[in-house]
Design a protein around this nucleic acid. Structure first.
Length: 807
RNA sequence: GCGAAAGUGGCGGAGUUGGUAGACGCGCUGGCCUUAGAAGCCAGUGAGAGAAAUCUCGUAGGGGUUCGAGUCCCCUCUUUCGCACCA
């Protein structure tokens, strides 16, 4: 149901844009590589090639039944070699540009299964399959150097309508911070330990140094240690905690003293070196100068292991005393115990201290990013093979372009072993070295599926190209994507990888834009009984059943009406019936009044909303149609009820256009049409209306399919055809409203006394403030409430209310 | 633990810049229509008091700013999403 909801939104937007005259491309693709597909196939004792293609067929059928305007000529599936060939091609480009490289990193490893586990496959530190202990194993992995683009990824100036929260999350993820690298010497050695800190102002308070077990220095010390020494045991323990446990760990700081010391360059003091579980290798320099008095984690650690503390920043309001401190003092203050910097304000001192350290070769100012390079290696079968061959003589050799795609071997038996099946396909793994012709081996790692999904949007521009991923002309004519729709769960990773890839493609000269997605809508998920629909929970709704029973338009209207697109929406069987009832009411209105509508509308049409696309192309387009009720003669022939109806028609057009155009809020747009429909039904005796009134009535009816088209295209086109219009509704463009009919001669003012509503008055539009005040004070209930009070002030909010302050 | 959001009737949700809280829909109640049901139509529907006019309370909880707060500020709680203990 999630997909149905997702594409109901996309289809509504694209139909709206089509009505505006744009040439809209609504493509469809399947991110079909990856673990879920592989596991699904194993479960069903089948092959992912078969199961994914099957699932795609089912989805395509459903999308067709929903009537989504998808351009099937551009369908893309990431697991088909005509697509993944180009992923391999991009990998080569990354490598050639120095953006793909290999390094070791720690992975969740199960010894029994001989395989790497994803975080989600680790349950309580144990393998999900065999329940044996998971350990961290150092493996060679391929990485993409996304950090080269860190600075540019912080720049959102070229996206138009991205949700603020997505931008914030990405900015925090990149985590740029200005700080200082400080060089400590190892005692009795010339070896330097570099630490990174954002608080150089606290350097004089450093009392120990914290290293993670992965630190190279620790590794070198461990060689001299006994196998079963305490230090070995501690390091093994910390490193074997899987990433999740180590990440989710509350505050239990643990460590072991190395018996070694480092020298603080600013004062020559000896500081203890500890190995700890709370420092990570991947950030900064992988080493921390610990200042327990002014960092909470260091504080907790120092308390636990009884390490000295030193106050170097004094609280200006309340003097800090070491013995009494219950937590670290992290606020700004005045420097103390800091030699010649004593008395400086801490925030201001940072620059001076960094500068002084730079001049005296104790360190340097640096900028650090939290962002790490993107690990793309996966030890799995159902993914895109990495186009690399390892030769004993030539080393790492790229597969030549003529040999792409490297096709995944399909005659593998899944589920027999827990390892990557590719390892055992000998005639696939064993190849001749492209350079020297000697026997060599293929890389058996496949790529992270985020690689596949990082550029597919560009492939839509030129999906059948077999010479290159796409031509520049076609890509530039379509990109950037005007409207991208995806779940909020992709706020950081997918959306950032795609931005990175786009900039990379730009630097290859393949596209000329800087961003892949101009506008972004993060849609909510469909829930049932308060939880996300999933097979395991058994709370799924089969779209097929609902479509068969109520039709595609009902499903679309319900989905769009249930909640704003960026919020989760709760599935409700009753709510679906409500949408169905609404469409039936629309149908009946036309059925019952067909003759009147037909007779009176054939010579008239709404003023067409300006054709925006044409305007952009600077073509002149004459607005040749007339407003229907504009030439019906004097208003005096019209009853009040009919004038109200005319107001409703034009007000609704205005509201719906605004809700879609400026707010993308389909639920309120549909509500407005429902309200209008109620207004139309309030006209009882249609036969007895005069000609002018009948025309207004007909206009109010015709507005409905016009406005409903983007939500419920099938019934709207059908009604349009029924009233005898020759053309198709979607070719007519959007209707426009006539400002003239929105002018009201009376305005309701609410009267508040001390903020509470005490009455209402209807006032003519051109009444003066004094007249309004006078009328307000004449209201019975207002007089009653004011009895015995003095009026201090009267505030008039134009066209809204009168507020009286009285005591 | 960190980062980002959200919390409004029995339910889904309205409430564009601080200005009538609860639009619209669902559900429920009563009535009409019908041999009966389905469908449809009409009326009502936040809580409490009252015959009514009307009054009091009410937007997760607690404070604050304002003539006026669902909306702005501070604190707390709960839920959702993401995560790589960010020095």
């Amino acid at each position: 149901m999630g997909h149905v909801s997702n594409y109901s939104i996309a289809d509504a937007i694209s139909r709206y844009k089509m009505m505006q005259g744009y040439n809209v491309m609504q493509p469809m693709g399947y991110d079909s590589f990856g673990m879920p597909a592989e596991n699904f196939a194993i479960q069903h004792n089948s092959h992912p090639r078969i199961t994914t293609d099957n699932n795609i067929d089912i989805m395509r059928k459903q999308f067709d039944m929903m009537g989504f305007g998808i351009d099937w000529e551009r369908e893309v599936s990431t697991c088909h070699s005509d697509y993944y060939k180009w992923g391999q091609w991009f990998f080569k480009k990354m490598y050639q540009k120095g953006l793909a490289y290999k390094k070791t990193s720690f992975q969740n490893w199960c010894d029994d299964c001989q395989t790497v586990l994803a975080n989600e496959q680790v349950e309580d530190g144990k393998c999900w399959r065999c329940s044996s202990e998971v350990r961290q194993k150092e493996l060679e992995q391929w990485f993409f150097k996304i950090t080269d683009y860190a600075e540019e990824l912080l720049d959102f100036s070229e996206v138009i309508d991205w949700p603020e929260r997505v931008k914030t999350m990405q900015t925090n993820w990149i985590g740029k911070s200005f700080g200082t690298e400080i060089w400590f010497k190892l005692e009795n050695s010339e070896e330097l330990i570099k630490v990174f800190t954002t608080r150089p102002d606290t350097i004089f308070g450093c009392t120990f140094m914290a290293l993670p077990p992965e630190h190279p220095l620790v590794t070198s010390w461990l060689i001299d240690e006994q196998e079963n020494s305490k230090m070995h045991k501690f390091c093994d323990m910390v490193m074997n905690e899987d990433t999740i446990t180590r990440t989710a760990e509350d505050t239990t700081k643990e460590g072991i003293f190395t018996s070694k010391f480092a020298i603080n360059p600013v004062n020559g003091e000896k500081v203890q070196i500890w190995i700890t579980n709370y420092v990570v290798m991947d950030y900064g320099t992988g080493a921390v100068m610990a200042v327990p008095a002014h960092d909470q984690r260091d504080f907790e650690f120092a308390k636990k292991y009884d390490i000295p503390m030193k106050i170097v920043i004094q609280n200006m309001e309340e003097s800090l005393v070491l013995e009494k401190m219950k937590e670290a003092y992290v606020e700004p203050g005045i420097l103390v115990n800091s030699d010649k910097f004593d008395g400086m304000e801490s925030t201001e001192s940072m620059k001076s201290i960094s500068k002084w350290m730079t001049e005296n070769s104790m360190g340097k100012e640096t900028v650090t990013y939290r962002l790490r390079d993107w690990g793309v290696s996966r030890q799995r079968y159902w993914g895109n093979p990495i186009p690399v061959i390892y030769c004993e003589d030539c080393g790492t050799v790229l597969v030549s372009d003529e040999d792409l795609p490297i096709k995944l071997p399909e005659n593998v038996e899944l589920g027999k072993t827990t390892q990557n099946p590719l390892l055992s396909v000998d005639d696939w793994v064993n190849v001749k070295c492209p350079k020297c012709g000697k026997s060599a081996r293929r890389e058996t790692d496949t790529m992270d599926t985020f690689v596949d999904s990082s550029w597919y949007y560009a492939r839509y521009a030129d999906p059948k190209n077999d010479k290159m991923p796409f031509t520049k002309e076609l890509a530039d004519s379509w990109l950037p994507v005007d409207q991208y729709i995806g779940g909020i769960e992709h706020a950081v990773m997918h959306l950032m990888y795609a931005r990175f890839f786009h900039k990379f493609m730009r630097d290859l000269g393949m596209v000329n834009s800087n961003e892949p997605f101009a506008r972004l809508l993060t849609q909510g998920m469909v829930t049932k009984d308060g939880a996300k629909m999933s097979k395991s929970k058994g709370n799924v709704v089969d779209p097929q059943y609902i479509i068969d029973r109520y039709g595609a338009d009902t499903v679309r209207v319900f989905m769009l009406f249930a909640s704003p697109p960026d919020k989760d929406s709760e599935w409700s069987d009753e709510g679906v019936k409500g949408a169905f009832r609404f469409l039936n009411r629309v149908w009946r209105l036309f059925d019952e009044n067909l003759e009147i509508i037909k007779e009176t509308t054939n010579s008239h049409e709404f003023t067409r909303k300006e054709n925006l696309a044409a305007k952009e192309r600077e073509e002149t387009q004459s607005k040749n149609s007339v407003t229907l009720s504009g030439d019906e003669g004097s208003d005096s022939k019209l009853s009040t009820g009919i004038k109200k109806l005319r107001y409703s028609t034009h007000f609704t057009i205005k509201k719906v256009l605004n809700d879609i155009e400026n707010r993308m809020q389909f639920n309120t747009a549909i509500a407005a049409v429902m309200e209008h429909l109620n207004n139309v039904y309030s006209i009882k005796d249609v036969e007895s209306l005069n000609e002018a009134e009948k025309a207004i009535f007909a206009e109010s009816c015709v507005a409905i399919p016009h406005l409903m088209y983007v939500f419920a295209p099938h019934i709207s086109e059908e009604l349009w055809n029924m009233i005898g219009k020759g053309n198709m509704l979607h070719e007519t463009g959007l209707p426009d409203f006539n400002e003239e009919y929105l002018i009201q001669d009376e305005i309701t003012y609410v009267i508040q006394i001390m903020g509470k509503v005490r009455g209402k008055i209807n006032v003519s539009v051109d009444a003066t403030d004094d007249e309004i005040k006078k009328l307000a004070l004449e209201v019975e209930n207002v007089k009653k409430s004011l009895a015995g009070k003095n009026i201090l002030k009267m505030i008039i909010v134009p066209k809204k209310l009168v507020s009286i302050v009285a005591k």
